[in-house]
Simulated assay, not measured.
Amino acid sequence: MEGKLAQRFGYIIIAFTLFWVPMVVTLLMNIISWHETDRFLMELETSAMVLTCVPAAVDPLIYTMVTRQFRSEFSKILSSIRGCPVKLRA
């Protein structure tokens, strides 16, 4: 149980780092290139901002799907649908 928890915690830290590193890098690039900002750097910053916001939108779905009770109830709903081939482990 502790191993699974540590592994999940590691995944969360890695995902957090991967989603935030582009924003930090673009902000540092803005500081280093204090002269005129070019269009590419602005587009890069916008992309990094969007990438940084993705986890906030997706995390509630992921954490909901991870809980055993939710998977169990969701499986019941899917199994009640005729011909649904999806099976979730509860």
Rank of each mutant, 00 (worst) to 15 (best):
D59M: 12
P60N: 07
S72W: 01
F9S: 14
I77K: 01
V54R: 00
L88H: 09
K76M: 11
Q69H: 02
S80D: 10
F70H: 03
T67A: 14
L61A: 15
S79K: 13
E73R: 04
F70M: 10
A6F: 09
R8Q: 08
N30G: 07
I14C: 11
L78A: 02
G10T: 13
V86A: 06
L18I: 12
S47V: 10
L27M: 12
C84M: 14
Y63P: 03
P85D: 08
Q69D: 12
R71H: 05
Y63T: 14
A15W: 07
V21Y: 11
M23K: 06
C53E: 06
S47Q: 04
I12Q: 07
M42L: 12
A56Y: 13
W34E: 06
E73S: 06
Y63W: 15
C84H: 12
E73Q: 14
E43W: 13
L51H: 02
F70W: 11
I81V: 11
D59Q: 13
V54F: 11
L51C: 12
M29V: 09
I32M: 10
A56E: 02
L41M: 11
F19K: 04
A15S: 12
V66P: 00
I14W: 04
G10R: 05
T37V: 08
G83Y: 08
I12H: 02
L28W: 02
R82K: 11
I31D: 03
R68V: 10
P55N: 14
Y11T: 02
R89T: 13
E36G: 15
S47N: 10
C53Y: 10
V50F: 08
S33I: 02
T26G: 00
M65D: 09
S79P: 00
R39L: 15
I77S: 11
L28T: 03
T17R: 01
R39P: 00
V24D: 02
G10H: 01
V86P: 00
G83V: 01
K76G: 14
I14D: 04
P60S: 07
I13R: 03
H35P: 00
C84V: 05
L41I: 10
E36N: 13
I81D: 01
I31F: 07
I12V: 12
I31E: 05
F74G: 04
V66A: 15
Y11D: 02
G83N: 11
F19V: 05
T67G: 03
V21T: 15
L61T: 01
I62D: 05
E2K: 10
I62S: 08
L51A: 15
S72H: 05
H35Q: 13
A57S: 09
S79D: 10
E45F: 13
S47G: 15
C53T: 04
